[in-house]
Amino acid sequence: MSNRSITLLQRVDNATEQLNSKFTDIVNSAKVSSKDKSALAMETYLVEESTSAMVRSLEDLLFVTRSLKEAWILGQIRPVVNKPEDGGEGQLADELLDKIEDTSDGVDKETA
């Protein structure tokens, strides 16, 4: 895996983790227990801050899709041709060789 895909995956992970944790923060600070005013004020601020962080993570996710598209357009992404379940590397070449051999068989038969 290239460095680029690792960074992109990390970005996705970070963003989802942020979304989760910040939402948990909001829910946690939503409850009103017997606290003094300063603690309450701090919690209200925390809610606000967590919202901003969530928005930023969402924008980050959008950026990931954008850079993926850009890489695709510029041909920096190679679609996986030889998947392991298809037989891995060399499978297509083997098939091609089989076909070529078939045709030469055909030619042999014709000439024979």
């Binding site: 909001i26 009103v32 005013k37 309450l40 919690e43 209200t44 809610v47 606000e48 901003s52 969402l58």
Partner: peptide, 27 residues
């Protein structure tokens, strides 16, 4: 000792949560 006023706390919380909801919605 500041008198504990639960009404104020709840008001603040509701306000901030509403703001958060609106921001997330517009976003």
């Amino acid at each position: 000792q500041v008198a504990n006023e639960p009404g104020v706390g709840i008001g603040w919380k509701i306000e901030s949560l509403t703001n958060a909801r609106d921001r997330l919605k517009t976003c």
